[in-house]
Design a protein around this nucleic acid. Structure first.
Lengths: 249, 249
DNA sequence: GGTATAAAAAATATCGACATTTTCTATTTT
DNA sequence: AAAATAGAAAATGTCGATATTTTTTATACC
């Protein structure tokens, strides 16, 4: 997924973009950025790991300046940290951070969803129905998703949550929510191999969808909070029990 | 989420930095970054303006790659936007954006302050008292602050608000709050020459300080919300009435 | 043995030069 | 005259080379 790089083609209103925006022709920076993001989220580049420019430039096939620029842009998403004279590191992980992310994400995503439901028009409904339908297809397809399906599920899960909050008028809430969702996904991918092993995620998504379409704000708050909590619980247990994933003692 | 608090007792309190971190020796990137940020917030570099690397590199006395890296890091703070093959721009402004910033900032800052009051220890109190004292000195010094004092007031105002929320355990809320505070300051500086012309800001700060020290959450929420609203009102009127500041129709 | 010190190695940070793409401008075409 | 087009100018994006700083390793010292 493109994370916080927004392809603006389907945004109708005169919204001002925040952050990096892609355009027709790509650049080496964008390519490196996309690959680096995926490698960080997937855990190929490990949490806290030092990102040596000299070493990585050959790996990603770009010059030093280009790689540094890509890494600098990833600081925007808090996936990379930069320290003067000491280079770049992959953002570290911790149980504390996971909890913080989940709680803050709940606050922002619930707010965004409520506002979205309040302001959403017919077009928003159509987009949400579409996103929900695509997500349903892949979630009902298999008991535990195969490796290939996982990537598709991840993409559609992101798109569903994006569609849910798309009508929230606050660009800032949407942006912050998106960043936290990415980090949430990172923790999930670092700790879990498959989706929905010990819970039926689709039921949760269905509840969210139904409440949103019914404009039932109260229920929406409840089921959405529950959804994020459940994700947290599962990941938290895994991270806690796997010392290799948990650099913090 | 509160239901999971019990698992958190053994979570380490070690804080992980988000974003760019300075170290003992500075770098050309950091110098350019600092100057660029100041120039954007102060309006020397105008909202929406194209940031030509070729032109600016001589102005800031650095190479192209270094300048690009500084600009890329400013994307983290949403002060600069980057578009592939089309370079960098100063983040645009709009009335809509100002409203969004103020509302989102209220949500985050109130939350952060309440949590900070809840968790703040003696050291937090000491730091807050110090920050408040330094702010008071400059706010009571003059009726309308002279140009030289304005810069000091801005610095101390930031430090006071930072100190207020310093004990909030959520790094993410603090980070997002800080970004929005910077943007809020930018709008204020773009529209107002001096502080406290039509209102006594210090009384508001005093109310905030008193409520925080008394751990009176309810009052704190009220006066802090009021404070951000008031700032918004003043700036909104100025921006609205000054077409040169308002590129959005 | 552990600590301080100095040389060596590695990595970061930085610049200038060049290729590619976009933007501007003048000319031609309908 | 407006639109399309082609050439010129400007700006972006990119890389390799190099100075500076940090980190590691080896050596000497108490």
């Amino acid at each position: 997924m493109d994370g916080n790089i927004r392809f603006m083609d389907n945004i109708s209103k005169t919204e001002i973009p925040i952050g990096v925006v892609a355009s027709a022709t790509s650049t080496r920076v964008l390519e490196a950025l996309t690959q680096l993001r995926e490698d960080i989220i997937s855990g190929i580049l490990k949490p806290g790991e030092k990102l040596r420019v000299q070493h990585l430039k050959s790996k990603y096939g770009v010059g030093a300046a280009t790689l540094r620029e890509a890494l600098s842009l990833l600081v925007s998403e808090s996936l990379v940290t930069a320290t003067a004279q000491r280079g770049f590191n992959v953002a570290p992980i911790s149980l504390q951070d996971l909890k913080d992310i989940s709680e803050t994400r709940t606050m922002l995503e619930v707010q965004a969803a409520v506002e979205s439901v309040k302001h959403g028009d017919e077009e928003w409904e159509v987009q949400l129905i579409g996103a929900y339908h695509r997500l349903t297809k892949v979630e009902e397809g298999t008991e535990d998703l195969a490796n290939s399906s996982t990537a598709i599920w991840e993409q559609r899960n992101i798109e569903f949550h994006e569609a849910l909050v798309a009508a929230c008028p606050s660009r800032w809430i949407r942006q912050f929510r998106s960043i936290l969702h990415t980090h949430s996904e990172r923790y999930r991918r670092l700790s879990l191999q498959t989706v929905g092993v010990s819970r039926n995620v689709h039921i949760e998504h269905q509840e969210i969808f139904d409440a949103a379409m019914a404009r039932d704000t109260k229920t929406l708050v409840k089921v959405l909070t529950n959804h994020i909590d459940k994700t947290f619980d599962v990941v938290y247990q895994m991270v806690k029990e796997d010392p290799s994933l948990n650099p913090i003692t």
